[in-house]
């Protein structure tokens, strides 16, 4: 049985480590915050200028000056700090963020990522995605294994314009988890969703992996 959105978020949360500074993308990656293991100290960064993001506010306590990168109202913690966009991306580009979890449209076998231009739709912009993949030390991608019409999204080459070249370290799909030890190695099949076989994954993937 393929993994659900919640399962993907739970699996990505297993990549968190105590003391990590983490940036979570919009969509499934945002759900990862719900599965931070109890007792683990993880600091969430929001690229619009905040470290130490707290949970959503209680109704009536929303503050329009306090939002995350998805423009959602959030709260601060006793450990929070605020800063400018240039300081924020200094953290990101400068390699000070340990882990980023992002969504994707396509991932290539060489680690290229495409996630900002949706075919046939108005291009809305890359936001901070290109900076995140260029600077964060470890990039984990969560996505559906295949598009709605069954086309493999883990492919030999990205067809869509790239967000970043050779920047993905781990790929979590609804069928399987792929990982590589460094950015000059090929991806290896690491885990399978319950009841899914390696043969089924190969049949639904056009990328090469070990």
């Amino acid at each position: 049985m393929p993994w659900t959105r919640e399962d993907l978020a739970k699996r990505a949360a297993r990549e968190l480590r105590d003391g990590y500074y983490v940036n979570l993308g919009i969509g499934i990656p945002t759900l990862v915050a719900n599965y931070i293991p109890a007792g683990m100290d993880v600091v969430l960064q929001s690229e619009n200028g905040m470290l130490g993001m707290g949970p959503f506010p209680f109704e009536g306590e929303e503050d329009p000056d306090l939002i995350n990168a998805g423009k959602q109202t959030i709260t601060e913690l006793p450990t929070s700090s605020f800063f400018s966009s240039s300081d924020s991306f200094g953290m990101i580009r400068g390699g000070h963020i340990n882990l980023s979890v992002l969504g994707a449209l396509e991932v290539a076998e060489n680690g290229d990522l495409a996630n900002w231009m949706v075919p046939g739709k108005m291009v809305k912009g890359m936001g901070g995605a290109m900076d995140l993949v260029a600077g964060v030390r470890r990039v984990v991608v969560v996505m559906e294994h295949n598009s709605k019409d069954g086309v493999p999204k883990f492919r030999p080459r990205c067809e869509l314009p790239l967000t970043g070249a050779n920047c993905v370290d781990m790929l979590i799909t609804d069928l399987a988890v792929f990982e590589r030890p460094d950015r000059s190695s090929p991806f290896k099949l690491l885990e399978l969703a319950p009841g899914v076989t390696a043969e089924q994954v190969r049949a639904k993937t056009s990328a090469r992996f070990e």
Partner: peptide, 20 residues
Amino acid sequence: YLAKELELEFNPQGTLAERI
């Protein structure tokens, strides 16, 4: 934008911040 009445230059967010 689609009617070509408006020009658009996309910058990655961090690149935009640093350019400024």
